[in-house]
């Protein structure tokens, strides 16, 4: 029954990342709407920020993988 608890951990990590990446995306869209000429800069920064947010979630997911395999 390890797996079920690890799955909850994974789910929580993903919720956090989803909120973070959602906010990154929403703000980028707003910024592009405000300044369409800066779309190139905004896009690459958006991807960078999304990747950083994702990093935290990935660590949590791998940790939950690790605890679900105590062998």
């Amino acid at each position: 029954m390890y797996g079920s608890i690890a799955a909850i951990g994974m789910g929580l990590a993903v919720i956090g990342a989803a909120i973070g990446i959602g906010r990154v995306g929403a703000s980028a869209m707003e910024a592009i709407a405000r300044q369409p000429e800066a779309v190139g800069d905004i896009r690459s920064n958006m991807i960078l920020m999304a990747a950083l947010v994702e990093g935290a979630a990935l660590i949590a997911i791998v940790m939950s993988f690790l605890v679900s395999n105590p062998a």
Partner: peptide
């Protein structure tokens, strides 16, 4: 150390 660790995990995952 966490920076390369996340690089590794992000691509892999």
């Amino acid at each position: 150390f966490i920076k390369p660790l996340t690089l590794m995990l992000r691509l892999f995952a």
